[in-house]
Design a protein around this nucleic acid. Sequence first.
DNA 1: GCCGTTTTCGGCCCGACTGTTTTCAGTCG
Length: 564
Amino acid sequence: MATGLPRNSDVADQFELLADLLELEDTDAFQVIAYRRAAGLIRETPRPVAELALAGRAKELPGIGATIEGKIVQIVEKGEIETLTRHRERVPAEVVTFMKLPGLGPKTVRRIWQELGITTRDELRAAAEQQQLRTLRGLGAKTEENVIKALAAKPAGPPRTLLGTALPALLAVVEVLREHPAADLVSEAGSARRRRETVRDLDIIATATDPKALTEYLTTLPWVAEVAARGPTKATVVSHDGLRFDLRVVPPESYGDLLQHFTGSKDHNVALREDAVRRGLSISEYGVQNVETKDVFQTRSEEELYAFLGYQFIPPELRENRGELVAARDGGIPKLVEASELRGDLHTHTRWSDGRNTVEEMATAARERGYAYLAICDHSQRLRDGALEAQAEEIEAVAERVKPLKLLKGVEVNIRPDGSLDMDDELLAGRDWVVASLHSRFDRTPTERLLAAMDNPHVDCIGHPTGRKINKRPPADVNVERLIEAALETGTALEINSQPDRLDLNDAHARAAAEAGVHVPVNSDGHGVETLQFVEIGVAQARRAWMTSDQVLNTRPWSRIRPR
DNA sequence: GCCGTTTTCGGCCCGACTGTTTTCAGTCG
């Protein structure tokens, strides 16, 4: 973007570093928490907070007050928060990184730095090896051993697993456990249940007539490569493809409390508990205690738990402390879209470009899914020298055979580095549905190129708007707010691309687009018949974006998308 | 530093685990 304002991620990084430094210097812990919360909030805000702060409107975000807004303005004007500059001068740069080592928190790191004078990772390793750390009260041989091990380990942990990889495996395990005779209630929990785009461990919560039999059963399943933990009520196993499953068998009378606790998110639970404290209630995974009377409320069902606390039921996808508690108090939780409500798919490929199946195979699979329409959107580059006409003929011929499915002649046209499209307008005019996408040179004025594409009256939809590939490529520096404005002006749709490593728009962007009134289809971008089902995690992303079926374009019949 | 159907001041989630201690501080999720 041309404005040159700092990105939200850069602003958030500064507040996070400031929080780390203040924590090391033993500043008031709640101030540190306030900066951390603000950093997280800024990171996931779809609008540029720098712009909001300059307009004096960043304070409208919950958790940002006048002080933090002022510091955001400092970042715009001076490049860095002034207090951050001061603190960075006082604390050696590497000392902050000590806190990232498991087991070392701010208190311990501060003493290692100030009492032993250690300022680099090399010095820390040497001190641990020479048994210097144990001279500090409270540290011993075990701590030294852990520090040496942590410093030797690879700096970054394993990348988070894509939801699209983990979820089918998790749901299959849940099904298998449900069929065991000792099992009663079994549910997925954790971030997978909230359908976050990536997950680390896969959590399962269950009740059972014979807990030990159920945990034992998990450890003996054929796909288990390693049993990391095994006990009467808890087991952890790792599959051959590296997925880590954690099963907890809990007492039936507090199943609802525990499922809620282990579904999270942490931020949601903290906010829920803070809210409860103000009303004289104390929530834990074991129940809700009335602080005065000491009465404890326990329940088998999450629905009853939220109802007891005075909330509407909150679907797991919304439990991120993004306003769902306030909404649930006022009955404002929307009825979220369901995958079964999709009537078609507006972005798929065939062998005419890089797909694996024929037009007929894709159309048949779409009809079997119960769709009313399917747009074949092969890449424009592969439809040259007469291929476009030949493909259109094939689509028309297949369309006759797959009725009542409406087979649409679509195209995914490439946006060139200069913002022009690589297919002529008269050819685009002959297509039923035109998706325009960036596929290269993401660094070259991506916002301007997308805006130029949207100005073309033949373009119906922008494909995977930011171009990110999770774990591989960051999103292009697209100003999504401007994209949303232009989408409204031109009537262009912005898709949620359901490929597991794209999920683009992401949840925050999709929420902003849908709230603004932009048409947002959930598309598979399927390159084979088996990948049409990617829309299930695309719909999960739409649910995380608070979207109702009215806000998802392809829940409508084709006649209401393109009336003719 | 933020926030308010008890508060504009005085609060700010809760419990388990670890390593180090003989009762607990720090860390983690």
